[in-house]
């Protein structure tokens, strides 16, 4: 019996430092995967979230009050309607006329600003689209998709309504079917 015990293989474990590194790397990888999955399942930015400032360069011909780029912070105290669209997006065409009508209705009050964010698009096609639907509110490309990544958009069109304090009030995923639908969102924010 004693011989058997002496002949038993001596287990040489992984050194402690190697174990720590291996487990740290594995945990790190799991955290990265978990963060990615969490982000994928999070959906868009939710109402109640304070929207951080962003800068949107504007297409020439679509400047706002002579400015070639706009910053969200410039519009604190106003209701901001941020519409993500693209010229290749057929559902965007369904709401394009309604968005422009709403801009013509609310823009002159000075209390509401519409911003068009052109997502993953080419400028020539974007210009054709804007001209086709007679869109006049400030529009520009989402350079390096920074803005759409911040809002975690799931597709286009998506429209975000930010109140006077910079807090996200409502998210519309998909196109608006009528001007009344847009009014029903803006009017309560205006009344606040």
């Amino acid at each position: 019996m004693t011989e058997l015990q002496n002949d038993a293989p001596v287990r040489k474990g992984v050194p402690l430092w190697a174990q720590i590194i291996i487990w740290a790397l594995l945990v790190g990888l799991l955290v990265i995967v978990a963060m990615g999955l969490n982000r994928a399942q999070q959906g868009t930015v939710q109402p109640g979230h304070v929207i951080d400032n962003f800068t949107l360069p504007l297409f020439s011909g679509y400047q706002f009050e002579g400015r070639s780029e706009i910053h969200l912070d410039d519009f604190r105290g106003k209701i901001v309607v941020i519409n993500f669209w693209a010229s290749w997006c057929k559902p965007c065409e369904q709401e394009a006329a309604e968005m422009q009508t709403a801009w013509e209705e609310y823009g002159p009050t000075g209390e509401v600003i519409f911003i068009g964010v052109d997502y993953v698009d080419t400028e020539p096609d974007a210009r054709v689209y804007l001209k086709k639907f007679g869109i006049t509110y400030p529009n520009g490309p989402d350079l390096a998709t920074h803005i759409s990544q911040y809002f975690r958009i799931k597709g286009v069109p998506e429209t975000y309504f930010v109140d006077r304090d910079g807090v996200l009030h409502y998210v519309q995923v998909g196109p608006f079917s009528s001007i009344d639908q847009i009014r029903n969102i803006i009017d309560p924010i205006l009344a606040e």
Partner: peptide, 29 residues
């Protein structure tokens, strides 16, 4: 398809491969 058209247009304008890729990185990340 629009992106490919833009590449075609930029090539016709005499832009090099690197210039085109740099443009796309600047525009879309």
């Amino acid at each position: 398809r629009q992106w490919r058209d833009l590449i075609r247009q930029m090539l016709a304008e005499g832009k090099s491969e690197d210039e085109i890729k740099q443009y796309f990185v600047a525009q879309y990340g």
